[in-house]
């Protein structure tokens, strides 16, 4: 089949960008979206033009590297699908597609369809972990975890950090990403000691990274390739406010020996 692509081209963060039109004949319906872009890039290189830069790695929907907007929807808006797992059979012959990078202040553009998502790493650095040094763990079965809690934690932990939630949110909010991590760890007994601290620190970090606020519109949930529920955002809100009210100043005294 034949498609017309409008792709955002921008050579660097400070360069001007624009949509560029490409005709794509001979698209096979079993191709993935990225394979279709591979074909485009090969043809551009042969013509002596610069290929389109886009991020990708595992191409099986789990590493979270890939992602851009297709016709105004993150990853194309198909349920539980990243662009690398989106196959061309979902498109119609002759269709015109608009391909744009994630847009958010917190995700500065690097080149073409590639953006810098290191803000997510910094949110994790603020508290998205359980402080357990190597070697200090009790037996894996020492603390039983109700299956339903383990399952809910797993639902939240499925996040691949692709940034679709931010991209599709009308406010470029990172609430779903942050909430997924807080919920994952706070639902487990191992996460309890740092539960409130974690919520406070991660929310503060999220704020400092220039993400917008959640207005409960559910766009994130709809385009999340892992189908992570906004129920997690409610959990985040709850733990954050509990934490704000129950927080105490840290005790300064440290044991000296």
């Amino acid at each position: 089949m034949k498609l017309t692509l409008n792709v955002w081209r921008q050579s660097g963060p400070n360069a001007p960008g624009k949509m560029v039109r490409y005709d794509m004949p001979g698209v096979n319906e079993d191709m993935s979206f990225l394979e279709m872009l591979d074909v485009l890039n090969e043809s551009l290189i042969v013509k002596g033009e610069e290929p389109v830069t886009f991020e990708h790695d595992c191409r099986e929907g789990i590493c979270g590297s890939c992602g851009f907007m297709i016709n105004g929807k993150a990853h194309g808006g198909f349920p539980k699908t990243t662009v690398c797992q989106l196959h061309m059979r979902h498109f119609k012959d002759g269709e015109e597609l608009f391909i744009e990078p994630w847009r958010a202040s917190a995700f500065p553009l690097v080149k073409d369809l590639m953006v810098d998502r290191s803000a997510f790493d910094r949110i994790i650095q603020a508290g998205g972990y359980i402080s357990v040094p190597t070697g200090s763990a009790p037996d894996g079965n020492a603390i039983p975890i109700p299956k339903s809690n383990a399952d809910r934690a797993m639902d939240a932990a499925a996040c691949i950090g692709c940034g679709a939630c931010v991209a599709s949110c009308p406010n470029a909010s990172a609430s779903l990403f942050t909430a997924a991590k807080v919920a994952h760890l706070n639902l487990l007994p191992q996460g309890q000691p740092e539960k409130f601290d974690r919520a406070l620190r991660m929310v503060t970090a999220m704020n400092e990274e220039l993400f917008g606020s959640c207005t409960n519109m559910q766009e994130c949930e709809a385009t999340c390739p892992k189908g992570i529920s906004i129920e997690n955002i409610a959990i985040l809100n709850r733990h954050f406010v509990e934490a704000s009210f129950s927080e105490r100043p840290a005790t300064a005294e440290v044991g000296a020996g």
Partner: peptide, 22 residues
């Protein structure tokens, strides 16, 4: 055997039985 313990302590949500064991 230590790996499993370490990962559980880190919050890796391994599959569980109804009784709560791994």
């Amino acid at each position: 055997v230590n790996i499993i313990d370490q990962c559980v302590a880190q919050g890796v949500p391994f599959a569980r039985e109804y009784g709560g064991t791994l």
